[in-house]
Amino acid sequence: MQYLGFDPSEGADGVTTLEAMASTPAEQHAAVMAEVQQVLEWAWRRFPHTHGPADDGMDWDHDLQVQVEDGGWHTVTLTLTASPRFAQAFVEAFADALPGD
């Protein structure tokens, strides 16, 4: 991942939130969206039938926000909510997009 870096946080309920934000000029927006697509395609492939709210027992859910700012900058925010098993698989697949120790 060149643009997206995920910041994990774990709630008291065992649900992990993985949030990434990238703010780039318009010329780099397609590259950011390609990374978003890569993450979401992985999630759909790996956990195809368990997308939805954690409160309903699902493994993962997502929220994608795209805003165009002044000066043509594009801000993309991707938030994933994850069960422990999704979070572990995500760490294994996207270690390079997580903060180092």
Rank of each mutant, 00 (worst) to 15 (best):
E10W: 04
G57N: 04
V36S: 05
L80F: 02
T17L: 12
R46H: 12
A31N: 12
M58L: 14
D61V: 01
V15M: 09
R46T: 15
D61R: 08
Q28P: 03
R45S: 14
T50L: 05
Q67V: 08
V39F: 01
V66Y: 01
V66W: 00
F6D: 07
T24N: 10
V91Q: 13
E69I: 00
Q2A: 11
M58E: 13
E35V: 04
A26G: 07
A31G: 11
A43G: 11
E27K: 12
T17W: 07
R46L: 08
A12M: 10
T77D: 00
L18E: 07
T79K: 10
A97K: 06
Q67A: 13
Q37E: 15
Y3T: 05
G14I: 06
G11A: 15
T79Y: 00
R45K: 14
P48T: 05
A20C: 06
Q67K: 12
H62T: 11
T75C: 03
W44S: 15
A26W: 04
S9P: 02
G71F: 05
P8A: 06
L64N: 03
T79C: 03
L80T: 06
Q67Y: 01
L18S: 07
A12L: 12
E19K: 14
T77Y: 00
T77P: 01
F90C: 10
A82E: 03
M58P: 02
Q88P: 01
L98A: 05
W73V: 11
F47T: 01
V68C: 03
M33A: 13
H51Y: 14
V91E: 14
A54T: 01
H49K: 13
H74S: 10
G100M: 07
